[in-house]
Design a protein around this nucleic acid. Sequence first.
DNA 1: AAACCTTGTTTGTCCTAGACAAATTACGAA
DNA 2: TTCGTAATTTGTCTAGGACAAACAAGGTTT
Lengths: 318, 318
Amino acid sequence: MISTRFSIAAVERDTGLSKDVLRMWERRYGFPLPERDANGERAYPAAQVERLRQIKRLMDQGHRPGKLLALPVEALAALAPRQTRSTRSEHIAEDVHGLEDLLLLIKQHDANAYTQALQQRLARHGMQRFVQDIVAPLTQYVGEAWEDGRIEVFEEHLFTELTKRVLRQAMTALPAGLGSPRVLLTSVPEEQHVLGLLMVEALFALEGAECIPLGTQMPLTEIARAAQAHQADIVALSFSTAFPHRQIPPQLEQLRQLLAPETELWVGGSGIHRVTPPAGVKFFSSLKAGVQSLTERAQKKHPEAGAFLHMPLPGAAD
Amino acid sequence: MISTRFSIAAVERDTGLSKDVLRMWERRYGFPLPERDANGERAYPAAQVERLRQIKRLMDQGHRPGKLLALPVEALAALAPRQTRSTRSEHIAEDVHGLEDLLLLIKQHDANAYTQALQQRLARHGMQRFVQDIVAPLTQYVGEAWEDGRIEVFEEHLFTELTKRVLRQAMTALPAGLGSPRVLLTSVPEEQHVLGLLMVEALFALEGAECIPLGTQMPLTEIARAAQAHQADIVALSFSTAFPHRQIPPQLEQLRQLLAPETELWVGGSGIHRVTPPAGVKFFSSLKAGVQSLTERAQKKHPEAGAFLHMPLPGAAD
DNA sequence: AAACCTTGTTTGTCCTAGACAAATTACGAA
DNA sequence: TTCGTAATTTGTCTAGGACAAACAAGGTTT
């Protein structure tokens, strides 16, 4: 195959680095330094795109572009993740073997076996423990594997897609919500990870909340409209680590302004570490914390209905 | 509420119009003409964002920006869709009442009732007819309602999310594929509509194909890697009407280059109308055509196994 | 009238290069 | 160490120019 070259737009799509950033890096650091096509426009060779992808991955781990771009190609592969993540899955280390087994099925591209393995665990543990003790740690584990480059993008996609299916299927078996509180679940544009939202939905639905799943990538103005139309008590958002940290607070402030003051805004996901919540926005660093807050809220509003609700959750989860 | 203003990045997210386009329109047509914040940067009032959203919708119907941007605000609302779409759902007009009923449930924001109605129809008609006669026309109907502004963005999201669930749930009941052909289903970045892919998957799985669902928004290079890793015989992509037409051929050419020559590239979805397929890429203008092509392909490769396969499908669908 | 080619207009994307604020690090003092 | 300040890094915004591809309009031929 002779040199497939990529336009700047194609590189933006493939790496997630904006055109502005690509041009700026070229100006400042001399990399990437694309060839030019007949029209004088940038034409990136596949090798540069590959290196950019690698750099992006390392940046998501906390490395700084200035260092990475100065580094020779060979040095990149040897770089270890930087200690941004607190403790890095120590709390799941106990059961790491079970997770490893599941991940192995994905890496063997055996979709059917993976699905069956998940369903088996679901049947054995029940919904709540399945979500908290299996899916949540597994998702985190996969996220870390992705950051370390131990898993391909398409393997992560397959994992997400299959896990989503099992979760959704399990949820259809759940009884309808009590009608209160009404929780609207979604994510902002650019944030396409939905697994976190599904886990929250599963646990919230177990607690009797009325969940309104809107999928991902809702424009802020539309989130506000939806909250009004559905008379939502709570809007729940999720941010993954892949989401650019710096954009989180301004977006939340904007959404807070657009929402009715009495609508609560709950935010979770692995992307909110080290981010400080704006006024009027509640951050939850774990699934457990979110569910607990929901039960407390319910007891405050309808103390007599407390009998419906499960006890605060035992065990750790994220 | 005091004038919430939007940065150019926020407008890009909310409307889907690129920063370049926003600036160019301002230069050429004098709209949008945002205010400036303390740093001299564009700050769009909510009213302008709203009008931009409306303009975008009309453009997706085939109107030209030059005309729209010259028009006064009041004239916009009165504009009818331009006849780009061939015949516009005449072929579903017969059963339009059943569809209208379903859509009504969505517009009443009654998620549970909608889900139940769908499940009831699935049970009554069986998978194949459910997909072809209910889900496909309904999706098209909703798409047209969206283009006409008769449905809100968040209503469309809710529709998609709930319909996805019913379809996926139904598919888990299907037996595993025969192992051949192996079909990899996904979509390119920027293309987040997944319903079309799910419908294809459902029908292909019925025919015994081994489906590998990777969700949406896969970078082209990753699609190629996945096809290789999974030894896919066919890569199936879907483009919705929302996807910018002009970007389709170059992206397909690029992907065609990245894929092994023996891997087939099948493309469908409402977005490919009036687009000419590049060499080595097969376009399917309807679900039916895709399924038919699959059965013919199977008979060519394994004539003796023909007994497994269903007859070519009766009835129309898209 | 329908199919075709040619010409002019519209429109999106890419280009360069400068500026600056916010985030991060480095440094020095308490 | 812990804190506050200065220096640096880094992403995003701005301006206007250029151009090719898409599209409409008009004229010619079948």
